[in-house]
Amino acid sequence: MSGKSRRDFLKTSAVIGAGVAGLSSSTAKAAPKNILSEDRMGVLVDTTVCVGCRNCEWACKDAHNLPAGNLESYEDRKILETKRRPDIKALTVVNEYSPGKNSNLPLDVKVQCMHCDHPACVSACIVGAFSKEENGTVIWDTDKCIGCRYCMAACPFQVPAFEYNKAINPLIMKCDFCFNRTKEGKLPACVSICPVEALTYGTRTELVKVARERIKRNPGRYVDHILGEHEVGGTAWMYLSSKDFKELDFPKLGTNPAPGVSESIQHGIFAYFVPPVSLYALLGGIMWITKHRKELDQEEKL
C-alpha cells in the first residue's frame, strides 16, 4: 500500500511541479482545512484531580485496536515508578510525580498529543499528510505518510512516535483525539472512561473559562498557570497543576507558534516543487551551456 501511495504521491507532485513551476513560492499556503475554528474542541486535564488509575491508557488502546490487555491489570501502580513517553503501542501514558502544594497526594499527569492550534507537525510534513481539523484535532493521513519523521523532529512536545520495528511500511503514530469517535458525536475514549473526570471535554474557549474559574476559586490548590493556553500559540489540550509544569517534565515553551519561521522556509522549499524544478532547470541550463561550448570549441578547432 505504501509503495502505491508513495508512487501516487510522486506522480501527483511531479504533475503539480511541472504545472506550477512558474509560480512564486510566496503564494504557498496551508490547506483550507487548517483554518482555526471558533468552536474547536479541547480537553482540560486537571492533574490535581487525576488519580493515576490509568483507565485512559486502556481505553485508548481499546479504541485504537492496540493490544490493551485486561483493565484490571492496570491497577498495578509499580509501572508509575518509571517515567514513560507515548509510543506506538500506547498513544497516551500517565506519569506520577511527588505531591504539589497543599496536598499529600501524588500528582498524576496524562501525556498525549496536545493538538496544537498552530501545529508544527502540520507545517513540517513535506507531503501534507498532517492537518488541523475543524474540531481541533490534529490528524494525519497514513496513506500519504512517507515515514520521513519530520513531524517527530518538529513537535515541541516530542509526541509523534515511529514504528521503528517495522521494516516495511513503518508509520507515524500519535493520539488522534479519537477523531473517528468524535465524528460520530462520541467522546474521546479517555475522556469517556475517566472515573474522576480529570479530563473535561468542551470547546476550547469554554475550557479556558472553566480553568480560570477553578484557579480563582481555589488558589491554594492550583498554580496560576494554564499550560497550553498560550504555549506555542495555544493547544487544544490544556493542563492545570499544583506545581510548576517544569517539574512535571513539560518543556519550557514560548508563546510563539512552533512553526513560525521554519514554516515559511519549509513551505518555500517544498511548495509546488519549485526549487527542485528550478534546480533541474539550472542544471539543464549548465549542461546545455557546457555542451554548447564544447560544440563551439569543436567548431573552432575544425
Binding site: 467522546l187 469517556s192 472515573p195 474522576v196 473526570e197 473535561t200 471535554y201
Partner: peptide
C-alpha cells in the same frame, strides 16, 4: 451524562469518585 453543555462542574460519575478517591 459526561457529554453535556455545562462543564463548569464535574458530572455525577466524576463527582462521586472524587469524593471517595481523595
Amino acid at each position: 451524562t459526561r457529554k453535556r453543555d455545562d462543564i463548569s462542574r464535574p458530572d455525577l460519575k466524576g463527582a462521586l469518585h472524587r469524593q471517595c478517591m481523595d
